[in-house]
Design a binder for these strands. Structure first.
Length: 421
DNA sequence: TCTGGGGTCCTAGGACCC
DNA sequence: TCTGGGGTCCTAGGACCC
């Protein structure tokens, strides 16, 4: 039986790198990409990291640094990142037939079987240079017999510049060496809480964790961490998932650009989120039976009164019809709305899905046959976003997202196409 | 003044059933 | 006076990921 080999390829500073791709003047300059509403930092160029700007830090806390170090800001531009991501994944797909797109900026490749033909290190470098040449983004590549070890290899590739961004952990000896110098908190699946608990047990490095007793770990923690221990020892517990499993829930929620104090604006917001969630649901070819909406004031400001409430709705017949979901959402809103608060965020969750073509109809159900209308709306909006929308979503949307530093949609909008002088 | 959004999985505990 | 045990389902909460 041949040994499995996974590669984890992930883009360096993905959002910041995407922005810089279209702004060559920003080469070697600090760049920061902000979350929705320009709330906090979610991506930093190497230079911004060097200035000590932490991931997730609220924007206002670093505002003084912006001028001092001439940092360029960007509001997040997901249309751009999603498009760049697709290009990266397509290139990777051409290099390896078996690929799992794990997130917007990383993918696992199954290289099993190829390692008798190629030197893994060279294969990794080939992947790296191909992405750089074709798309202009730099990636790190980690290669190893299990996904968890491939993640670890990738961490090594990023953390140690001498590796050139490619680390091959096919050999046990190399796995052990890297694990011995890697803090356990860097292991995939070990977060802050687990690190703290593990530290009490004197498990401080990835190596310590790999050497612990899996049964004991299961008893004290969970089956998830047990798998991690096994994976660190080269035992495959996680397989490549080429086809994304069906979603179990869909959430559409957002903080507001400015606080909402009247129910009319909240109706617009809830309607917009409900509409967006329904769209996502239809794209999944699923029907939903359960809906939950929530509204909340800021959880950070202790000086303003706090109020948070949610309301669930069960649909008698599973649905994907925006009109039905929208109506239910607004009725639910009436029940939880309270005047006199400054709301900061709201959202909707759809769950309890069934496949559309396996629909169980109610005996008394008169099929509204809304398919055609919804399909038409979706088709038009896919070509040009937000062309058709429901009146209850509002037109002005004063509460909408704050995006003061938005870059053009270079690759997805004709009018934002770059021109060469 | 200003703190993202969208997911998954696991576990413990309660309700309920036989 | 004596008050089982095992199974399932659901939910809330916690932990993790990017």
């Amino acid at each position: 039986m041949s040994q499995t080999t996974f590669a984890l390829v992930d883009c360096n500073n993905f959002y910041a790198s995407c922005e810089r791709l279209f702004r060559p003047d920003l080469k070697d300059k600090p760049i920061v990409v902000l979350s929705n509403n320009d709330g906090c930092v979610i991506s930093r160029s190497k230079e911004a990291k060097a200035l000590g700007i932490r991931m997730g830090i609220p924007f206002f806390q670093i505002a003084p640094l912006i001028k001092r170090y001439d940092i360029t800001l960007f509001s997040s531009n997901y249309a751009l990142y999603a498009d760049m991501s697709q290009r990266v994944m397509q290139t990777l797909g051409n290099l390896s037939p078996r690929i799992e797109v794990y997130s917007i900026d990383e993918a696992f490749l199954d290289l099993s079987g190829t390692h008798s033909l190629f030197d893994m290190q060279i294969l990794g470098e080939t992947i790296q240079s191909k992405i750089l040449k074709d798309i202009g983004l730099s990636v790190g590549v980690g290669i190893a017999p299990t996904k968890t070890l491939a993640k670890l290899a990738n961490y090594g590739a990023k953390h140690y510049p001498k590796t050139g961004g490619v680390v091959d952990l096919s050999l046990k000896r190399r796995q052990h060496n890297l694990m011995k110098i890697t803090p356990v908190s860097e292991v995939w699946g070990v977060g802050r809480q687990l690190s703290k608990k593990l530290a009490f047990m004197n498990i401080k490095t990835a190596w310590d964790l790999a050497c612990s007793n899996p049964a004991e770990i299961r008893r004290l923690f969970s089956v998830v961490l047990e798998r991690t221990v096994r994976e660190l020892n080269g035992e495959n517990c996680l397989s490549l998932e080429e086809i994304a499993p069906a979603k179990k829930q869909i959430i559409s929620s957002r903080s507001f650009g400015e606080r909402i104090t009247n129910i009319e604006s909240m109706r617009e917001a809830i309607s917009s989120y409900a509409s967006r969630a329904s769209e996502k649901l239809r794209a999944e070819n699923q029907l939903s039976k359960f809906m939950n909406i929530f509204i909340t004031t800021s959880q950070f400001n202790p000086n303003t009164p706090y109020y948070a409430k949610s309301q669930s709705v069960q649909f008698i017949t599973p649905t994907d019809d925006t009109r039905i979901i929208l109506t239910a959402a607004n009725q639910a809103l009436e029940r939880i709305w309270k005047d006199g608060f400054a709301y900061a965020k709201a959202g909707i969750m759809l769950a309890d899905f069934s496949y559309k073509h396996q629909q169980q109809l109610d005996f008394f159900h008169n099929n509204p046959n809304s398919d055609k209308l919804m399909k038409t709306i979706d088709t038009i909006n896919q070509k040009s976003r937000h062309t058709l929308f429901f009146a209850s979503q509002g037109i002005e949307q004063h509460w909408g997202m704050k995006r003061d530093y938005l870059s053009p949609a270079y690759t997805t909008n004709w009018k934002d196409l770059m021109s060469v002088k």
